[in-house]
Design a protein around this nucleic acid. Structure first.
Lengths: 274, 274
DNA sequence: ACCGGCTCTTGACGCAGATCAACAGCACCG
DNA sequence: CGGTGCTGTTGATCTGCGTCAAGAGCCGGT
């Protein structure tokens, strides 16, 4: 589980020498905000002055089927995004935190293809997509940064598909925890202790498990002294290396796959990324 | 399972009045090719003259970790794309057919994040990404079409996540078959009879199932006279409506979800899209 | 302070799908 | 031709996780 996302975040941090001239300078998520990524060419930065919007815990920023107008960058708080099947089944497709972007799946069809719900009181930057389009004519760096964001989202989704398709319950939960740790670390927080913003049920939905199973895995990991839970919401990772070791050794590797030519192949670098 | 992709394909077809001036005019996938989508503004179409490349069945167009240079549009043949975990487990993330694009996940990190392997002898258009970037300065329609492709890929991946996270074996297989039918139909082929280009194992990997399970579901659907298999590779859908009915009624709908406010919510339109 | 409603944990049990195994069809090849 | 290897089917058995159920902790409202 090498963490390619770490490298990319490091690159971003390096790129942020000149703070944007807009109110982004005051934004808590400035260091991680995509609009900081565009680097030296800040001639149009002043135009990236966006409106803000506050979202209360439990209410939704947009819903599947709503007309697509804006992208949203999270200034504070956390969100889940999810899709809903006709019969009411829900799949949480990602958890987003400060500095991450919401609404990318609306570009293709002019309708949002998922719900975005605040897991705690939150604030977002409202980024009219039309403005992005208009600006990108003169600022190719902006256009290509949007492409990158979209592409990374695809790569992320693919690694979640790998998780859902091939891993078992404990592995899924461990990947989930390590991924959260990594993202908190990238944001300058302690990676080994953080608060879960979502319920067991939401974690389960994300991981393709039932809430009872998530709960049981948490209990088992705690019994093994690999994690510690406080008030059911605060997690402490007591032994990240041992946690990591619980993935990829757990399941008997198919001899068939090993036999094929693809055996000497570079392994997926970003499975712990989400 | 309404099929939003059908509507979008219809829109595309309508947009293709003037055939591109390049060799795309001869391309078998012209009607579905993304580069036909850009519509009236064809001033730069002449510059979209791309190299071709032939790929033999079983060999790969690119592999995870390869430096990202090109997007590829499929002119003929079919591909799978997949990610590989460190321990050798493989997850097929999509099957691509004529007119579809490969390599979008490379934009974000300058490395491809998946493998693309030909399921039969195939030919692709080689589309240097640098050229796209250069052209988009003068052709905003091209840039925004790329954004759309990327965004639709995200939406697709999300619906696959919903499939992997919430559906059971038979539902998954049925969704898979109906989705193939729809895409063949969009390409002008009979939707009710087509040849599977991939093995049971690859289908299983895509659907998060073992090959035996896929085989058993096929047998059961055949026993129910819903499908017919010939030579293990040709599928005939004998009763698409009944097949559709096997999804979304199968699992007992959680009363809890139904109770929430989200009940009156627009249901996912694109679950059968892949 | 008390109550009603969530959220979470834990146990007992059942089942869908994985695993293991045997075999059949078929392409390719010496 | 017979052999070798790959792909697919089918049966028997096992098991990880879902399901059902009971109860405990916690929070906000009145």
């Amino acid at each position: 589980m090498s963490l390619s996302i770490v490298a990319s975040v490091a690159a971003r941090k390096a790129a942020i020498h000149a703070a944007p001239s807009s109110s982004c300078a005051l934004c808590a998520s400035r260091r991680l905000c995509w609009s900081s990524d565009v680097g030296a060419d800040d001639s149009w930065h002043a135009q990236l002055e966006f409106g803000k919007r506050k979202i209360k815990r439990g209410s939704s920023l947009f819903r599947m089927g709503d007309a697509f107008d804006n992208l949203y960058a999270i200034r504070s708080g956390a969100f889940k995004s999810s899709v809903l099947l006709e019969d009411g089944r829900e799949q949480v497709t990602s958890f987003k935190m400060v500095g991450e972007l919401l609404g990318l799946d609306g570009i293709g069809t002019d309708e949002y293809m998922s719900d975005a719900v605040a897991l705690e009181d939150a604030e977002v930057c409202v980024i009219p997509y039309a403005r992005i389009v208009a600006l990108s004519h003169d600022a190719p760096a902006l256009a290509s940064e949007i492409n990158r964001m979209l592409s990374r989202e695809i790569a992320h989704d693919q690694s979640v598909m790998a998780l859902l398709g091939t891993m078992q319950a404990e592995e899924r939960v461990v990947v989930f925890l390590l991924n959260l740790a990594q993202r908190y670390e990238a944001r300058g927080y302690a990676p080994n202790e953080f608060m879960l913003r979502m319920t067991r049920e939401e974690i389960g939905s994300y991981l393709g498990l039932k809430l009872e199973t998530v709960s049981r895995v948490f209990s088992r990991l705690q019994a093994l002294a690999l994690i510690e839970l406080e008030h059911n919401r605060t997690v402490r990772l007591l032994d990240a290396p041992k946690l990591r070791a619980r993935i990829s050794t757990a399941v008997g590797v198919e001899s068939r796959i090993a036999r094929t030519a693809r055996a000497q192949h570079a392994a997926i670098p970003a499975i712990a990324a989400a």
